[in-house]
Design a protein around this nucleic acid. Structure first.
Length: 490
RNA sequence: CGGGAUGUAGCUCAGUCCGGUAGAGUGCUCGUCUGGGGGGCGAGAGGUCGCAGGUUCAAGUCCUGUCAUCCCGACCA
């Protein structure tokens, strides 16, 4: 396996190569679609199970709605159509037949669908069409559902995990009796996402509100978490939407209040996708390959034996399997790689590429000395320790690594965040250094668009913890009451 | 949908200008020596040169058409 292109040399090539060499995913022959390979999927499963637990803990249940949505549903909510119509895959026929000239299969023109179906780009419409039937009274509320699904958005330019035509995600869809409750739900799920990103992915995130132009199609308010990648570009890692009564009105979902009045239901939706894989990869990994935080690592520890001949291998195996068993008792996933078909050096490089947090090497010297060699993936430090301390030491390393990775990412973000009040300075930083730029903005879509045209930077969010501060808009000079966060984004 | 480029071994690509037996690196298979950081040596398998026409004694190479992919722009979790 050849070395990776370094991040400094070509960041985007580094990313592409890493996704391939770490065995996470590959491109499909179907344009824009990806094949998620076992190692990549294992990480996704870890993410799913942690998130799923958090959703359940906050009172949500899983359900499943269809892949296909009648075309007419989409058009019921005006902004929603506007946002998604341009990227929908459409099913028009339900049968193929052999071509008469023998050239293969063709779409059977006699099998045209009465109403065309779209492949879901998101499920608000089909879900609210059901909620209409499920909700009559305030007693039916709230409805707190989530679904794990695939969706399709026909993107022109795609990149593995970051933007693919088909992707996996979860979408929460909730229905509430009051506006306050719905807003609270949207905010709560944003907190869940932020906690997940920071505690499991070890990715620090900014919590904020999207500006009107960046808002989800059909939402009144979009909350988001934004992460900063190592190349200084921002990545939207999750969104939570307060949908107001837009979908309730579009699908005529009313409920009887305690007082017997008919009112429209309040809604939220929220989602994170396999894009999180991109965030994970680009937050921590280095020129040797992937770095995965222990809480999401499919394998925590790999043990590599170093030996000559069968006899030595069997002695080392005994030693290694004992350690493996002890670590498993502690709840760690351990792989003992006794393949004889690859040499130790190759294995070291391979597990570094795949991001296994801790590697243990055991050779004849260790047997003689009662030691093992422990290597950390995050710092690349190697240390030789007594085998009597091995289990506790390695177990303890998991927390240390988890924290270290987070702190490193946090420090990077802090070092890459700038307060800027001068537009030339703003342009210079956006163009050369990247990172998050905190600057004043007059609140108008026109100015936002101008800045985007002139610098390629967009407003990533209006931070939830925004400080009140009188200032002048960096572009228009008009008054502003607080700073918003600009960056070039993925 | 506009601008640019590329289709040759599993992968990355040379060969095309100037037509003459299909190449390299890597990966793969077998043998052997090796084994504490991506091994050495030897042998071997693997290709309708994107597709369809044409020119020619002869086409990966020249001509025409066609399909596909990638990159840069407009759109986006």
């Amino acid at each position: 396996m050849a070395k990776l292109t370094s991040r400094a040399e070509n960041y985007s090539q580094w990313y592409n190569e890493l996704v391939g060499k770490a065995d996470l995913a590959e491109n499909s022959d179907v344009r824009g679609c990806m094949i998620i390979k076992p190692h990549g999927y294992s990480i996704w499963e870890k993410m799913q199970s942690a998130l799923d637990k958090m959703f359940k803990d906050t009172g949500h249940s899983n359900a499943y709605f269809p892949l296909f949505i009648p075309k007419s549903y989409l058009s019921k909510e005006a902004d929603h159509v506007e946002g998604f119509a341009k990227e929908c895959a459409v099913v028009t026929h339900y049968r193929l037949k052999a071509a008469e000239d023998g050239s293969g299969l063709i779409v059977d023109p006699d099998a045209k669908l009465e109403e065309e179906l779209i492949v879901r780009p998101t499920s608000e419409t089909i879900i609210w069409n059901s909620y209409k039937n499920w909700i009559q009274s305030y007693r039916d509320l709230p409805i707190l559902l989530n679904q794990w699904a695939n969706v399709v958005r026909w993107e022109m330019r795609t990149r593995l995990f970051l933007r693919t035509a088909e992707f996996l995600w979860q979408e929460g869809h909730t229905a509430h009796a009051t506006k306050g409750e719905a807003v609270k739900e949207a905010e709560q799920m944003l907190e869940v996402y932020a906690a997940f990103a920071e505690e499991f992915m070890a990715v620090p995130v900014l919590k904020g509100l999207k500006t009107a132009s960046e808002r989800f199609a059909g939402a009144l308010e979009t909350y988001c978490i934004e992460a900063l990648m190592q190349d200084g570009r921002a990545l939207q890692a999750g969104t939570s939407h307060f949908l107001g009564q837009n979908f309730a009105k579009a699908f005529d979902v009313k409920f009887a209040t305690k007082e017997g009045k008919q009112e429209y239901v309040w809604a939220t939706s929220w989602g994170v996708s396999t894009r999180l894989m991109g965030a994970l990869i680009m937050s921590h990994s280095d020129d040797l390959g992937l770095v995965i935080p222990p809480k999401l690592a499919p394998i925590h520890v790999v043990i590599v034996p170093i030996y000559k001949g069968e006899e030595q291998l069997s002695q080392i195996s005994e030693y290694a399997l004992k350690l493996k068993g002890e670590l498993q008792q502690k709840g760690l996933t351990v792989k003992f790689d006794d393949r004889d078909t690859y040499k130790p050096g190759f294995k070291f490089a391979e597990y570094e590429m795949k991001g296994v947090p801790v590697r243990v090497a055991i050779g004849p010297k260790d047997l003689a000395n009662g030691t093992i060699e422990v290597a950390r993936r995050d710092t690349l430090e190697k240390s030789t320790i007594s085998n009597t301390k091995a289990t506790d030491h390695i177990y303890g390393l998991m927390n240390i690594i988890q924290k270290n990775i987070y702190n490193k990412a946090l420090k990077f973000r802090e070092d890459s965040s700038h307060k800027v009040d001068d537009y030339d300075e703003f342009k210079r930083i956006i163009a050369n250094e990247g990172g998050f730029v905190y600057a004043h903005w007059d609140g108008s879509a026109e100015t936002e668009e101008l800045i985007k045209q002139e610098t390629k930077a967009t407003i990533r969010c209006i931070p939830l913890d925004q400080e009140k501060e009188e200032g002048k808009c960096i572009r228009s000079g008009k008054p502003s009451k607080g700073r918003v966060v600009f960056a070039k984004a993925y």
